[in-house]
Design a protein around this nucleic acid. Structure first.
Length: 492
RNA sequence: CGGGGUGUAGCGUAGCCCGGUAUCGCGCCUGCUUUGGGAGCAGGAGGUCGUCAGUUCGAAUCUGGCCACCCCGACCA
């Protein structure tokens, strides 16, 4: 049991905060609502980026970069989108400071340096990008455009939580332009699949794919697809979104193309993104009271070797002895680190690497050297065993795969356990309060009912699952007829 | 933006009611002994008590303003 982390059962959100801080993932910064992502956290984000970036390239996308500032006139062009974000925009109004005439050493905003047009700090980049695409697109030969950008965005949130909701966050946003509606929809669902693949197979977090209701839809989109994950406390977390934007932005920015017959039409668009919020999903899916648990496929260090020794000579002997093992592990592309600090004792290192979630720990001391063995501890199950040094690399290679599988399976079982079908509103509220988790219930399809359920229970419709089973029933709230169950949950 | 709370060493805190220059733990530094699950002992360093003003011989403590942060709500990836 960790000495520094509040137990999960005692206070879940404190547990989360402790974890983020103690595992060196991130810190609160001097700027309200903004975080400092520390090397330990950034390394995991970098690994996420690497994998996702490769997946984007494999699906034909290229990276580009657009400005962080968006002139207000561009921003307001697509009305629904602008309205949707208006309440949380940071705005640049001036371009210069000057020394205060009254207070020495203080700076004031120079009133003479007011911008003619205010600049919005991007909460998302559709506006600036579609303004740019206008110049890139004339004919069907210019399509499709499949561009992604890795960037920071700012949304002035009132209440923030490290990784889950911060005023500034890192993400990627794909923005594509297509000649046909069908092609754009195909792109939207294709990228949703990419996200689901990544989140399940790399983060080991199972997701439910679906479509958002009109209430929950991205402002400016015709349809929003999403992946929803379930956290250990039974709350849902939206892990990624992919939007079919129809011709809304093309119309707002007057982006037309000539088809083969010379006929002009507006371009069809998509946008899709995942953010550093995925870090929150990762943390809350696998970690325990001893600290973080990182899936091997995203760990910055997959295996750490802790030498157990007496005196300087002892350390030297073991360091020499593990060199071949390190090489053999590296030959198998395993990320291994030798913790040869002589300022920390082994017990401390065990606890520390556990706290930081290193998937596999090897302990090796004089006794092992004599016996030709090593001690292998796995983070996910907190078990240890002694194995032969001789073919350790094969064993560990398999173990890393086993840990990755185990994390996904555990998370799948939890999601299954915390998923309930209900048929009455009483049952709905009872499950929500006592069992929590995903709830499948019939809904009459109206925004009014959705809103009332939200007001009364704080639960929202997370999505209408893709390929949803069609079955006749009655809405749990209104009793009106319904053709399918939708996914409800309280959410982050 | 509403409602509540808190600011004392890097972190967590005692002291405040009842004024006399600050307590303890963790961490940090030095030395010795240690090293197979967060070491022990000894010594040491570190604080404009959030900030500005007022009351007083004297303010962490009393009074007022300001600032910051946290929690709960409305909003949200």
């Amino acid at each position: 049991m960790s000495k520094v982390i509040t137990p999960r059962e005692q206070d879940y959100s404190k547990w989360y905060n402790d974890l983020v801080k103690e595992a060196d993932l991130a810190d609160h910064s001097a700027v309200k609502g903004c975080m400092v992502i520390k090397p330990g956290g950034y390394a995991i984000w970098e690994n996420m980026q690497k994998v996702l970036d490769r997946m984007f390239k494999e699906t034909g996308h290229v990276n580009a970069y657009f400005p962080i500032f968006i002139p207000k006139s561009l921003f307001e062009a697509e009305e629904k989108n602008a309205e949707g974000f208006a309440k949380e925009c940071a705005v640049v109004t001036h371009y210069r400071l000057k020394s205060s005439p009254t207070e020495k050493g203080k700076l004031i905003v120079d009133p003479d340096a007011k911008l003619e047009e205010e600049l919005i700090v991007r909460p998302t980049s559709e506006a600036i990008i579609w303004n740019t695409y206008k110049g890139w697109i004339q004919s069907y030969r210019d399509l499709p455009i499949l561009v992604n950008q890795w960037a920071n965005v700012v949304r002035w949130e009132m209440r923030t939580r490290l990784f889950l909701r911060t005023a500034e966050f890192l993400w990627q946003e794909g923005h594509t332009a297509h000649a046909t509606r069908e092609e754009a929809i195909e792109e939207t669902t294709k990228m949703l699949e990419v996200y689901a693949d990544f989140v399940e197979n790399y983060m080991a977090v199972p997701v439910t794919k679906g479509i958002k209701t009109a209430n929950e839809r991205f402002a400016g989109a015709d349809e929003t697809y999403c992946i929803e994950a379930l956290m250990q406390d039974g709350k849902a977390l939206q892990a990624g979104t992919s939007h079919f934007l129809g011709q809304n932005f093309a119309k707002a920015f007057d982006v037309k193309f000539a088809d083969k017959t010379g006929k002009l039409d507006y371009v069809w668009a998509t946008s899709w993104g995942v953010s550093t919020r995925l870090m929150g999903a990762l943390i809350m899916s696998h970690s325990d009271n001893n600290g973080l648990v990182v899936p091997p496929k995203l760990a910055a260090t997959q295996v750490v070797i802790v030498p157990i020794y007496k005196g300087e000579e002892g350390l030297k002997t073991i360091t020499e002895a593990v060199k071949p093992l390190i090489q053999r592990l590296r030959d198998k592309q395993i990320l291994v680190k030798l913790d040869d600090r002589d300022t920390q004792r082994p017990g401390f290192k065990f606890a520390e690497h556990e706290l930081k979630g290193v998937p596999v720990r090897i302990g090796i001391g004089e006794r092992d050297l004599a016996n030709g063995t090593i001690e292998v501890a796995r983070r996910d199950e907190l078990t240890k065993e002694v194995i032969a040094l001789a073919d350790a690399e094969t064993y560990i290679e398999q173990l890393l795969i086993a840990i990755q599988d185990n994390l996904l399976n555990r998370a799948r079982e939890r999601q299954k356990r915390l998923t309930t079908e209900v048929d009455t509103f009483e049952e709905f509220k009872k499950v929500l309060d006592e069992k929590t988790g995903f709830i499948y219930a019939h809904w009459d399809g109206t925004p009014e009912t959705e809103e009332k359920i939200k007001q009364e229970t704080k639960a929202t419709i997370r999505c209408i699952p893709l390929h949803n089973k069609q079955e006749a029933g009655v809405c749990v709230y209104s009793g009106k007829p319904s053709q399918q169950r939708v996914l409800f949950a309280r959410a982050y």
